[in-house]
Write a protein that binds this DNA or RNA. Sequence first.
DNA 1: CCTGACCTTCCAGTCAGTGGAGCCTCTATG
DNA 2: CATAGAGGCTCCACTGACTGGAAGGTCAGG
Lengths: 128, 128
Amino acid sequence: MNIGEVSERSGLPAKTIRYYEDIGLIKPLRDTNGYRAFRENELHKLAFLGRARALGFTIKDCRALLALWEDKSRASADVKNIARVHLAAIHAKIGDLQSMHDTLAELVEACAGDARPDCPILKDLAPH
Amino acid sequence: MNIGEVSERSGLPAKTIRYYEDIGLIKPLRDTNGYRAFRENELHKLAFLGRARALGFTIKDCRALLALWEDKSRASADVKNIARVHLAAIHAKIGDLQSMHDTLAELVEACAGDARPDCPILKDLAPH
DNA sequence: CCTGACCTTCCAGTCAGTGGAGCCTCTATG
DNA sequence: CATAGAGGCTCCACTGACTGGAAGGTCAGG
């Protein structure tokens, strides 16, 4: 399998796949012409990575998850721990964004949005 | 005012303030000894920047907002537009994070988290 | 043989800072 | 007056997770 097919089947850009090889997440073989020769194994890993990244796991997390995924004797508790820490981080981020959202929504609401220069948004951003 | 005082009063690290000068957001004068000499004006701008960044505006947004802030004849509609676009982006991000959160929470819930290798989290990440 | 798609490497840039080295300047104290 | 320590300066490199582009090699079809 060449990188194009893997890219299409995994949903990841070729650039990203090369990058993942660069940082050691996958180790595809090479054809005599120098092209990367992917096996099903690498395709699976890339699909795994795509899903994990889409769930917001960092590359570092992904590395740990991949290792656990490949380790037949892993304890599910190890995986659960990584996931729980990540879950808490997502939760916190949602909270932050929500309060940003609320503040900003209030300001947008209060702003006339016309040709006059008077604007509560800028007023609020200004030092009090 | 030296950078230390400005840092304390604006709440921004000195490094960040130098960076903001670097990218042209502020233009403090210089003392004969080479130290940056901040006026109230720059302090205000930095405080403004701190608030805007805390609300998640990008530096590019901040540049536009600063320009509008300094423009006595700006239309509040211009400001409102930037804010509305940003608000929509925040909203979308919250949605993404929320669905990540829900998916992950389900998985964590389903995972025994014990010494056995059977783990629904990894199962779900695997290609189906 | 040629075209165009696909592959390769390598370098540079993104965003918004952060960390550190090496050096200069100011102020307070002995 | 010497010195210690705090604070200032510049410059370079690094972060994460890619992305863009240049310059060139390879392959399949007509």
